[in-house]
Design a protein around this nucleic acid. Sequence first.
DNA 1: CCTTAAACGAGACGGTACGTCATGTCTTGTC
DNA 2: GACAAGACATGACGTACCGTCTCGTTTAAGG
Lengths: 215, 215, 215, 215
Amino acid sequence: MNAQNTDRTGRKDRTDHPEPPPARQARGPKVQAAVLAAARQELAEAGYAALTVENVARRAGVHKTTVYRRWKDRETLVTEALTEHLAASILIPDTGAFESDLRELARRMVRSITSVDEQGVTAALYSDAGRLPEIAAVRQGLFADRFRRAAPLVERAVDRGELPEGTDPALLLKSLIAPVYLRLLVLSEPLDDAVADHAADITLAAARAGLFRRT
Amino acid sequence: MNAQNTDRTGRKDRTDHPEPPPARQARGPKVQAAVLAAARQELAEAGYAALTVENVARRAGVHKTTVYRRWKDRETLVTEALTEHLAASILIPDTGAFESDLRELARRMVRSITSVDEQGVTAALYSDAGRLPEIAAVRQGLFADRFRRAAPLVERAVDRGELPEGTDPALLLKSLIAPVYLRLLVLSEPLDDAVADHAADITLAAARAGLFRRT
Amino acid sequence: MNAQNTDRTGRKDRTDHPEPPPARQARGPKVQAAVLAAARQELAEAGYAALTVENVARRAGVHKTTVYRRWKDRETLVTEALTEHLAASILIPDTGAFESDLRELARRMVRSITSVDEQGVTAALYSDAGRLPEIAAVRQGLFADRFRRAAPLVERAVDRGELPEGTDPALLLKSLIAPVYLRLLVLSEPLDDAVADHAADITLAAARAGLFRRT
Amino acid sequence: MNAQNTDRTGRKDRTDHPEPPPARQARGPKVQAAVLAAARQELAEAGYAALTVENVARRAGVHKTTVYRRWKDRETLVTEALTEHLAASILIPDTGAFESDLRELARRMVRSITSVDEQGVTAALYSDAGRLPEIAAVRQGLFADRFRRAAPLVERAVDRGELPEGTDPALLLKSLIAPVYLRLLVLSEPLDDAVADHAADITLAAARAGLFRRT
DNA sequence: CCTTAAACGAGACGGTACGTCATGTCTTGTC
DNA sequence: GACAAGACATGACGTACCGTCTCGTTTAAGG
């Protein structure tokens, strides 16, 4: 499930040599995927600070030098392991009503975060690994993208008169995700649909009260 | 049990009077404080993953072995450095009105987080250092304590009829802090009074809508 | 004298092709030899008690961890450094006459001890390093071997009637080497052929007097 | 030479006189003796290389700083521990006949070496501790003294016509002690009267053969 | 007795070396 | 050519001693 999507997005190998049409795959891609998966598991189990190239290699059934052949260093490896799974964007719902849209969006977000193979990896984004410039950039871009893509959801609601004029989509969306990340990163509480619904309710009430209007 | 200043020089003993002028501090406590401060600076600048005992020692103007004499290992040192400054509890405001109480509480929280010497240290609590069992425990306790201490603020509001019966203080407080931590940990946006006020507004609207009633 | 004799005994590099001219030395063996040589120099100059792995490494132009990669600890390193040069056995002379045999044997022994690269190393065998079980064993074996190999020299003399029946070779040989080691270890006097000849004379006189007959 | 004039300060030697009359001793001498004894035990058990000031202190039931208060460093401590027991000189026998003199001298030497509280300490003199300049000096002096004091024994024998004119006492004595030290330092064989007698026999035979005449 | 100064216990400190582990580079041999 | 294997320099880890220092307590001397 994670091996082949490397090609899907047109992102190629991080090496720049073309090699597009002819298959030619030796064990390369297989090894690569195994290492990234191993890195993610290590991130989830041990965290970024304790992640070791040698452990990753061992877990991937690969030799240390093979890892260094493809990734410049630990940071590069972690960065790629972390970003790879961020590709799958959350689909923006369009149910016709803001309330259900919001609820559904919150739930999809929670599910995305808690999906099996993101387990712990998401948290790594906000740990010490988050200090890596690449990761920081990815994180920034991640939310910029999400906010951009979800903006229409809000705009539709304004158009339909469900929300006050001037409601700022980004402001609203931040309110939506705040309770989720609070539980994930700060309180270490489990995430489930109830959390999502609660976040949606709070945000809805605030939105209707005009608290997200652009200043 | 013996006369205390029988010293040939007539020097005072280590009695409790201030003795401001010369003083003869055992260096123990001084060194200890210097090391903890250095550790905090390292945490802020380099993060937990990159924190090195030798760097901390160097920054504190102290030898590595001196650090190890007092702290078993890197983790213990970080734990103590992190815990120390958590002592100062936030004062719970009591202005007579829930809205101003909430606003003030939010602002105090923001100020506590952004105060000079917590700079970056707070964030460390939620980074890889947060995986240390001790730190996790401290974090748990920290919020348990905050929620417990702030509960009366909510209860007074309920008593005054400003909030619906059955409003759960913890639930409400989580809503209050969520936007703050989102900006601190996830979005890396600056924290200021506006953020605090915004969080208070959202929480207030939701509270009045009865969204924090115990289920 | 130490680098190339690896081949002499048939133990060669672990590759079997000769490849004499340039070769493609794995640096392994080269480093190993350099470290052992450095260890021997340190033993000679500073003695076992003051020998430091870091000094040995520095002198060998190698990093400390490289030493530890091949030798478990200081003791193992010293043991091997000490043992290596003990391989070269002293040839047992056979001149046809006991007196000249004995003289020659004594001289060879002295030369072996004072040969350039055993300088000081021999003494280390009897210093604190001698407490290491491995070293003790080597030392025991060393003399057992010498006595065994030199026994025929004595037996021939008995057969020729030059020495009394029942002369114990080991006893005789101990007498031969005693003055040598006294000067080496106790008196710190220089060793030369005169010492060897003197020891041979004494031993010869005692042997003829039947003082080495088995009791 | 070294036994009684330690008492510059009125401190008596650590020797055995009850010390009721003079008095005035603080605990100093007692501690001092305990530490030196502990040092000797450590030397015997662990050897010079492994001797630790902290272990010595612990064994003496004393604090580390107390040791450093009296002895500049480890070397000084060891030096004194080693030299102290060298005071008791071997008495030179005078039986009237060279053979019995020699035998007796050898036996006394062996007994001196193997006496309980020199156990292992003697060996330390020839171990790595022997590299300490002080120890080297002591060792030199020790044998110079012994040879000087035993010379009359040889001279009497020459006078009595038991030994050839020109017999060099030192040369003869070296022959006498060589087998003893060989067993002690090189062969690690037990020392007993048989060894002493054997050494005496060999030396006697060689002496009568004129092998110790001055060249 | 009581005082007083030396001797001691206690332990922090700056240091040196130990032996271990991980990083990232490089070389060799093998599939 | 990709990979396994592993040597290597580097640098941090955490430990054990070294020798220095300061502080407070014990103890036996002499008043």
